[in-house]
Nucleic acid binder design. Structure first.
Lengths: 214, 214
DNA sequence: GCAAACATACCAACTGGTCGGTATGCCGAC
DNA sequence: GTCGGCATACCGACCAGTTGGTATGTTTGC
């Protein structure tokens, strides 16, 4: 979900270093394929430290999703698109902000929660729920602006919550498509797909009321 | 991608049984978390048979993506939505067809290629390419109808290939969102999201030409 | 001095993969 | 027609390495 988070303070405790390692390794190798030893190696920490802070690998997965959730929501809360007066501008501003974050290798802008839930939704309910909270929490942050936009433009036949989920759907889907590609095409295809989301919303919020419903 | 494929003949050879097992297990547990022993157990086949037919687990992954690709494309080629005279009806018919396929647990309608590429895009180029072929092949099957619809309705600012990719994006993204849910909500959220895709296309192909571009 | 934060050594279970062997069916030669 | 030769399909014990997890220390801050 979030890409290159600049000015992130370097983690100090072993716990933080492990969470950072989890974000990095899960993004590029997935949850199952990432071993506890790899995590410890990446974090520069021993296995004893790992199991001191987390009772199991699954617990690290849950904590990583929550850590991810917290750092991304703080990142987006501080973004500039909130300042627009028009709610439609805030919504489109969010999409443009996401668009600007896409670049470089996929593991730099993909989503930890989306990656983990794909693998663990059946084997670990705890991880599934933590990833749900992360993704739906990110969606919920847009809901107020979407509700205002819907009210202002008189959009019928959907809801702010449903549209917020659609934003996440297109974002997550664009990451999957991006992962099928190589090199610069990864970012290019992800940007292209967010462009369709932008166009959908532009049409939805600008069109005459009687043309909205099919 | 494809869900409940009815009337599929029961696999006979060990190879076919292993491919069927791979589709089932990868869909519910992912690629990395599925072991060769599990695959053999599910297929009712020994390890000797596995490595007789596939040189490695990775090769099975590639073969599974190709097998998946072949069976889904045959399934969609035989679907009834192709018979509509209007290309826009064919495109919307495809979406409605996909909508009708969504139901039951996620692993019954999710996509093997999308699941695998999320895990293996960095560790296995062969699997990545096989999944790309599967997903983009599915997209390509819609391209002609989309091109005709674009031409007929005078849509500007995009291409048939890009819109075809968007269909896959929303489908793959809806599967990710569905996997965050439990029980019947899985199918419900996936259907809701395909509904947005349908609405986007409805607007795109019906609106006056001068209103299309923002 | 004492608890939290780590480190080291270790374990049973499992991992993908190998290897010698067998059962079966198809081939032309006689 | 039946026999030897040979390829394909499959079996299951086995291997070295790795897995998540534990048990027992040691260090450090207060």
């Amino acid at each position: 979900m979030i890409p290159n988070r600049p000015f992130r303070p370097a983690p100090v405790t072993a716990r933080d270093k492990l969470l950072e390692a989890a974000v990095k390794l899960v993004r590029s190798n997935g949850y199952s394929a990432t071993s506890v030893d790899q995590l410890c190696g990446e974090a520069g920490v021993t296995k004893g430290a790992f199991f001191h802070h987390f009772p199991s690998k699954e617990a690290l997965g849950v904590a990583a999703a929550e850590y991810w959730s917290a750092s991304t929501s703080a990142f987006f809360a501080a973004a500039p698109y909130h300042h627009h007066a028009d709610p439609v501008d805030r919504v489109l501003g969010y999409i443009d902000f996401r668009l600007a974050l896409i670049g470089g290798p996929v593991e730099g802008f993909s989503c930890v929660a989306g990656t983990m839930v794909q693998e663990a939704f059946r084997s670990s309910a705890a991880i599934r729920v933590a990833c749900e909270a992360s993704i739906m929490g990110n969606a919920a942050a847009l809901e107020a602006d979407l509700a205002a936009a819907i009210a202002q433009r008189g959009v019928k036949g959907t809801s702010a919550a449903s549209l917020a989920r659609h934003v996440q759907t297109v974002i997550q889907g664009s990451f999957v498509l991006a992962k099928t590609q190589d090199g610069e095409m990864c970012a290019e295809i992800a940007r292209e797909q967010l462009g369709h989301l932008r166009r959908y919303f532009s049409m939805l919020f600008n069109v005459d009321e009687d043309r909205i419903l099919q």
